[in-house]
């Protein structure tokens, strides 16, 4: 199995996942069923997390395919540009879904405007992703391309408002973008890592005077740090994708991040950690999750810093 194969496995997740998540969410809103709303928000967040490797493996797949006969470079570029906008909107939708999950725990209800925003942004993300998927399907599936010769040989119309190549030249040709993004990426690391330590060290037994419910309020600060690093990290990837796609530490870093997504749902939404009162010892299962969060974050930091030394990136 190579990364192109992995892309084939993952590339159905964003469209199918968002269709399921969004329909379920609408049903939950109409029926005023909070449980369904929370489950569907969890689905939207999880799909947004899986959309990260789906996008990254897509770029790897295009590198594998680009020199093969019968592959349209133009079509691949149009697919990649469409996927970039769709990816950006899907991450925003996932972030909003996470915020709503957090609010359900924190206030026992999520703000109405936030829920409406999730519907609108998710629907937009789905529409863009469906378009990207349609273009992507045409790359390797002659059976879905029109038999009408004029239509089949017509030039690919690239309608994406954000072109990957434009963004790439901005990143590489503007001297300050890379160093500035590096500095911001490390500041984001500090913020996210600080909140991760605060929550998980408490669960493991430090600072027992604080209840988990109180610490739960610090979670959005950690998410701000993560959001900063997702944006700056994607700038590095889009700038010079070739140095990451076949980079073993990079792949491990993404594996750690995806697993941390599941871990975050657990600490944001589930009842077990929420019940850890001030002065109380956390149950063993919660401690295992906390220890795994710290280990996975150490993995993210270690593999991230090793990109230049184990994987040849800068």
């Amino acid at each position: 199995m190579n990364l192109a194969h992995l892309h084939l496995l993952l590339n159905h997740v964003p469209t199918v996942g968002f269709a399921v998540g969004l329909c379920l969410f609408l049903a939950g809103l109409l029926q005023k069923d909070e449980k369904i709303q929370r489950v569907s928000l969890g689905i939207l967040f999880a799909v947004a997390v899986l959309c990260i490797p789906a996008y990254l493996t897509g770029v790897a797949a295009s590198e594998i395919l680009q020199d093969r006969p019968g592959i349209s470079g133009e079509l691949m570029e149009a697919h990649q540009d469409a996927a970039l906008s769709a990816f950006a909107l899907m991450e925003l939708a996932g972030g909003l879904a996470w915020l709503a999950l957090w609010q359900f725990r924190r206030y026992a209800a999520a703000a109405r405007p936030l829920l409406i925003a999730i519907v609108l942004v998710s629907a937009g993300a789905f529409a863009l992703m469906a378009q990207a998927a349609n273009l992507g399907g045409g790359i390797r599936h002659p059976e879905i391309v029109s038999l009408d010769e004029a239509a089949a040989t017509a030039p690919v119309i690239n309608t994406a408002w954000l072109k990957t190549s434009t963004l790439r030249s901005f990143i590489n040709d503007t001297s300050w973008v890379w160093p500035a993004s590096e500095a911001i990426h490390f500041i984001g690391l500090g913020l996210a890592f600080g909140v991760v330590l605060l929550l998980n060290l408490r669960v493991l037994g430090m600072m027992k005077g604080v209840s988990f419910a109180d610490l739960h309020r610090a979670l959005p600060w950690g998410m701000i740090g993560f959001a900063i690093n997702l944006v700056t990290g994607m700038l590095f990837f889009i700038g010079v994708p070739g140095q990451y796609t076949n980079n073993a530490p990079f792949q491990w870093k993404i594996v750690c991040l995806v697993l941390l997504g599941a871990n975050l749902i657990y600490f944001t939404s589930l009842t077990d950690p929420w019940r850890v009162e001030a002065g109380a010892d956390a149950p063993r299962s919660v401690k295992v999750m906390a220890a795994s969060a710290i280990v996975l974050w150490l993995g993210v930091v270690y593999f991230g810093r090793m990109l230049p030394y184990l994987g040849g990136a800068y």
Binding site: L189, A192, G194, G209, V210, R217, A218
Partner: peptide
């Protein structure tokens, strides 16, 4: 880099709390 995460992470979280973020967290245990 890990040391950076520990130093900056811990101080910034305390700073955010002092500036009013997540203000239900009691300061003493921090």
């Amino acid at each position: 880099t890990l040391g950076l995460g520990l130093v900056v992470g811990c101080t910034v979280v305390v700073d955010v709390r002092l500036l009013g973020g997540a203000s239900r967290i009691p300061l003493k245990p921090l």
